[in-house]
Write a protein that binds this DNA or RNA. Structure first.
Lengths: 227, 227
DNA sequence: ATACAATATGACGTCTTAGTCATGTCAATG
DNA sequence: CATTGACATGACTAAGACGTCATATTGTAT
């Protein structure tokens, strides 16, 4: 945890430090991020940094927790009013919300992604924070889906959850490259996956694939063969 | 490229250096790997290193290319005699061979994986090498599959390829954790995914999911509903 | 045996980093 | 005015990294 001193700083200064730190951790592996560099870019004295944070780990965990808080906030804001979605509708919403976060806060998403694929010297603490991002609940989702007869009974729950986790984590990257989104598209934060028609088409295609693979009675098969 | 001097070294010495370097690059991000540390662990003089390699990048690309050569060799060795597999049989074989490589040469696989998820200061050169690992050809595989009527005509080729690439890259990790394989199981290099019954069951489950999702006439649906 | 080429060595100069600490500034309070 | 507590600063130490180079060793060919 950052010190009280840090939270007493002016909004401007705190934001400047966090901004620089986010940028560094988003663009370099944890081990290669340099405190000296952050201090230089944020134009604060070395000594000040150590009055705000215990060290690199402290700062990093703070950023991770900020990111997860931001994600939770966004997800809650996007939560549909209808509370009892079918399994695949819920899944689609989850993936869309996650991609939206990735497009709206690319650097925060990047830090979380790094925590996931690289090794951090303190994996447990990092995982505890990133788990708030939601990737852990796919096992339950599938198990419930089978009970509700949305999901085919023959699927291997754990493996299906693995597939979903993986897609969940990577789909944002894919969407960006598939739709050829530029850094400008993203950084302006104007792109809305819920509104953009190309994005919606991609999500439909993805859900068709997933539902055909796991669903008990996949729409797409009926739809296609009835023609 | 390493210098001629390097290739003139005794097998023993060359292997020692490569072994240490593989270990370092498998366990640290590229930026954090230290030449000084490699030199220390391999017990050679600093000056010698720079007579063998131009620097870190040179060494790294050499390792990557060694790894890919090793993978190609293993894959060719595992290639089934029957040359005209159906799309999903071919896919299953590819994924199995890739997982086998990952279990047999975990450190090399790890280096390639890192090249994939972290940024390297020279992405183009690294990608050119890792592409030899085979992940690039899923687009063709799906397109061909549609032509041969193995793959359902409604699937989005590019997205299906994305899904397969992702699974292809991650399935080894998953298999290890799902089967609770220990470091010992792996490092002995005795584990054979083609022979182990638990592993085969996992591959069956995976292929059922993938084929149900993408296949034109998935076995699993007929099989289940005919009961 | 001598000369020449190939290989090995590690000290060295220069940088960068992490973290500390003595000192300095400033505003509020008694 | 004086004191106190909060915050700011950057020089400094110790450690480690990179890449070079003058020198030493080994091997080979004449």
């Amino acid at each position: 945890m950052p010190t009280e001193t840090f939270f007493n700083l002016t909004e401007e200064k705190r934001a400047r430090i966090i901004g620089v730190a986010v940028d560094e951790f988003a663009n370099k592996p944890y081990l290669s991020v340099s405190i000296s560099e952050i201090v230089r870019r944020a134009a604060i004295a070395k000594g000040s940094f150590y009055q705000y944070f215990e060290g690199k780990k402290d700062l990093y965990l703070h950023l991770l927790s900020l990111g997860m808080a931001q994600k939770l906030a966004l997800v809650n804001q996007l939560k549909p009013s209808n509370n009892s979605l079918k399994t695949f509708d819920y899944l689609r919403w989850m993936i869309q919300a996650s991609v939206q976060f990735e497009l709206q806060y690319p650097r925060l998403a990047r830090i979380a992604y790094r925590a996931f694929v690289e090794e951090i010297p303190f994996p447990d603490e990092a995982t505890e924070l990133t788990n708030q991002g939601g990737a852990y609940l796919f096992n339950d989702l599938i198990a419930q889906g089978i009970l509700h007869e949305d999901v085919a009974p023959w699927v291997d729950t754990d493996m299906a959850a693995f597939l979903l986790r993986t897609v969940y984590k990577q789909f944002g990257h894919y969407l960006v490259s598939r739709l050829k989104l530029t850094a400008a598209d993203i950084s302006e934060g104007t792109f809305d996956v819920f509104e953009n028609e190309d994005a919606q088409q991609l999500f439909r295609n993805l859900m068709d694939l997933l539902e055909a693979g796991m669903g008990r009675d996949p729409e797409i098969r009926n739809h296609y063969f009835s023609k």
